[in-house]
Design a protein around this nucleic acid. Sequence first.
DNA 1: TCAACATTTCAATACTAATGGAGATGTTGA
DNA 2: TCAACATCTCCATTAGTATTGAAATGTTGA
Lengths: 140, 140
Amino acid sequence: MREDQALLAFAALSQEHRLRIIRLLVEAGPEGMAAGALGEKLGAGSSKMSFHLSHLEQAGLVRSHRDGRLIIYAVEVATLSGLIAFLLKDCCGGRPEICAPAFAEARAEGPIKCSGPEAPKHPRLISADRLPGESVAEEA
Amino acid sequence: MREDQALLAFAALSQEHRLRIIRLLVEAGPEGMAAGALGEKLGAGSSKMSFHLSHLEQAGLVRSHRDGRLIIYAVEVATLSGLIAFLLKDCCGGRPEICAPAFAEARAEGPIKCSGPEAPKHPRLISADRLPGESVAEEA
DNA sequence: TCAACATTTCAATACTAATGGAGATGTTGA
DNA sequence: TCAACATCTCCATTAGTATTGAAATGTTGA
């Protein structure tokens, strides 16, 4: 991932509504979700949703396709994983004191092990009602 | 990491100067770097640097201490790893199709393996002159 | 073709962020 | 104490972002 793409992605994720859209879309999986359904979950009007969704799409974090009168948005997995790789590689640059705790923290308490083949297919990690606060053992 | 902290961190990383500051500080390691030295590397004046550095400090991504007439900035490792963990856990939520490629990409081509104990102490992964463009095998 | 619907686009407004210069603050060595 | 230095703070300006409501676009089923 190039630096300018990473900048766009960070900017896209730095807004509350957009971050929650991404979390909902990750949860929704490859089938994605209609703009209206997302707006309903977030309590945001159609115009607002359209604004943020197009922002996310420009950053390459989601893609969309029309299905009848709905427009379905789904997360662009490659960009998200590219962004994580960017942080791991270009930003944290092989310093184990940065990466190792991240891996540990991501696995600890996390419902799912991420890197193993033993991970379930459709985990539903993020429940929408857990979004505002946080779960249990956090704080980096 | 709480959602609001992650939002702050993403916002902080979404600006070209600030992203480069972080990369320079990761490269510099625990000893950190003086504000002026960073400004010189980035070709930015003192006022601009002060603005961006305090932005990064508010986001918890760097810490500072005075050393004589210099003010030394160093990356706050816990926040950076917490942010990666946030992406892995709360955002990508155990979907291996997101995490696994990130790990693979971070390791492939990357000078250093990240998660193993065999990683060198002081790798100098990022050379400043490689910042604008990119290295070799990228594109998520 | 038409009404109802889902979504986007547009325009106005308010807000926040980025920049550059001038001056203030704190530190050093003489 | 003072001049030189490193950095920060303040101010004005400019640019970009978020929000809202109204209108436009495209789709469906009758």
